[in-house]
């Protein structure tokens, strides 16, 4: 059983602030973390290893500092970490990213045949959920997205049974290995790393692959060149044509403010008034 887990280092979005004057992202001091959704993928891979033996390789494409995210993954119990990093990857959209990661996984597969590929359901910075499906298609792997539970893996029979979140229910799917699974949040709970793993995480030698080492010859498929989408502009939304009508009363009392607000809504929003009337009736 050899699982490859794709992770991404992301800024902790709960701590991102926008500069009030320049409307730019203030990156300083925002901690970088492993994309929280990826932890469910990593934990699921580690559980498979607990049950079936084998190994867990964690891979990320990113800048050199993404090494920290990989070492964190080691501390949870991953066996191998690979940082795919090259200036040529800069500006990649999801199509170019899945191309690069798929190439690297193919390379991993040459030395250690891959049984499963895991990703989180999406990242918290891009929120696209596109890279997992992209990798699966490029590697011709069966794709299982939004998996809430890996019910059974039959290694000898080469099958896997999972529960997949659909819109109005849960699909129970069985497919053949190898396959790619994107894990849903809350599907498991990340373990605490053992002390030996934490020590190993600090000392373990990082495998660093540039474009060539990752098996990529065609530079038009990666980075900005390999990205069909172009970001035209980044902006803050404009206020509504009219800003909020501020409700004030001379008394300043909350009770009076409430009555005044309700009276004003009734005058300007008959749709709300009608809805309230419906509830009264």
């Amino acid at each position: 059983m050899h699982s490859v887990v794709c992770i991404k280092q992301v800024p902790d979005s709960a701590q991102i602030r926008v500069h009030p004057v320049t409307n730019t992202i203030m990156r300083q001091g925002v901690p970088a973390i492993i994309n929280p959704y990826d932890l469910f993928a990593l934990e699921e891979a580690l559980r498979l290893k607990d049950r079936h033996g084998g190994r867990v390789t964690v891979i990320t494409m990113g800048p050199p500092q993404a090494e920290a995210a990989l070492r964190k993954a080691l501390s949870f119990g991953a066996d191998e970490i690979i940082l795919v990093t090259d200036k040529a990857f800069a500006g990649a959209d999801t199509l170019a990213t899945s191309f690069a990661l798929a190439s690297a996984i193919r390379k991993i597969h040459e030395s250690h045949p891959v049984t499963m590929v895991f990703t989180g359901k999406q990242t918290i910075d891009g929120d696209t959920a596109q890279v997992g499906p992209g990798i699966a298609k490029r590697l011709d792997l069966q794709l299982l997205t939004y998996v809430s539970r890996v019910a059974e893996v039959d290694e000898a029979g080469g099958t896997i049974t999972v529960e997949r979140r659909a819109e109005g229910g849960v699909q129970v799917l069985r497919t053949a290995l190898p396959c790619l699974v994107t894990m849903l949040e809350g599907s498991n709970e990340m373990r605490r790393g053992s002390l030996p793993d934490q020590l190993r995480a600090a000392r373990h030698e990082l495998t660093r692959w540039d474009r060539v080492a990752a098996g990529i010859e065609d530079v038009t498929r990666i980075g900005l060149k390999g990205s069909p989408t172009v970001v035209n502009k980044v902006f803050t939304p404009s206020p509504r044509a009219e800003k909020a009508e501020m409700v004030t009363v001379d008394s300043g009392r909350a009770a009076d403010l409430a009555v005044e607000l309700i009276a004003r809504i009734g005058g300007r929003f008959p749709v709300v008034e009608a809805e309230l009337a419906r509830r009264a009736g």
Partner: peptide, 17 residues
């Protein structure tokens, strides 16, 4: 669409595809 975890908006185009 929103970007940077919903801190800003961005406009994206797909020109030659």
């Amino acid at each position: 669409r929103p970007t940077f975890g919903g801190s800003l908006l961005c406009t994206i185009v797909t020109l030659n595809y």
